[in-house]
Amino acid sequence: MNIDRAVMAFAGLVILVSMALGYTVSQYSYGLAVFAGLNLIQASFTGFCPVAMFFRRLGLKPGRAFG
């Protein structure tokens, strides 16, 4: 797995967990999904993603987007 795929998988997991928490615990949990979506949008324009830096430190191979 490369960094690009790991970032997408992590973002998907965050969004799904946020939706589940929003449905079962509190509607304020939907804000986490909004944050994840906004972070994906800004990363697509700037190439900066804190999660990608974390996965790089874990030793994942670079991909095309977060190389």
Rank of each mutant, 00 (worst) to 15 (best):
Y28M: 11
I3L: 03
V14K: 05
F45A: 03
M53D: 15
L13A: 13
A33M: 10
F54E: 07
R64G: 09
M8P: 01
G31W: 05
A52N: 02
F66G: 03
R57M: 13
F48N: 14
A20L: 14
Q42G: 03
L21W: 06
F54L: 15
V7L: 04
L13N: 09
L32A: 12
M1C: 09
S26M: 03
L32K: 00
Y23H: 09
F48L: 09
P50L: 15
L13Y: 10
F54W: 15
A11N: 13
L21E: 08
T24S: 12
R57N: 14
I41C: 06
F66T: 00
F10A: 10
V17Q: 11
I15H: 00
Q27N: 11
P62Y: 14
R64D: 13
A9L: 14
G47Y: 07
A6G: 00
Q42H: 10
S18C: 10
A6V: 00
G47E: 04
T24D: 12
Q42N: 11
G67F: 09
F45P: 03
S18M: 01
N2W: 07
A43P: 01
I15P: 00
R57S: 11
T46W: 10
L16Y: 09
Y30L: 14
M1W: 15
I41S: 06
G31V: 10
V25A: 14
G59T: 12
F66D: 01
A33R: 01
M53L: 14
P62H: 11
S29R: 04
V25G: 02
G22Q: 00
V17G: 02
R56E: 15
A36Q: 04
I41R: 02
M53Y: 13
G59H: 06
L40G: 13
R57Y: 11
G37V: 05
A52M: 05
V7E: 02
T46P: 08
L16I: 14
A65T: 15
G12N: 12
L32S: 05
V7F: 03
L32G: 02
F54C: 06
N2R: 10
G22N: 02
I41E: 01
Y30T: 03
S29C: 15
I15M: 08
I3E: 00
G31A: 12
S26V: 01
A11R: 05
L21I: 04
I41F: 06
G47N: 06
Y30R: 01
G22H: 03
A43K: 04
G22R: 00
A6L: 07
C49H: 07
I15F: 13
P62E: 05
A36Y: 06
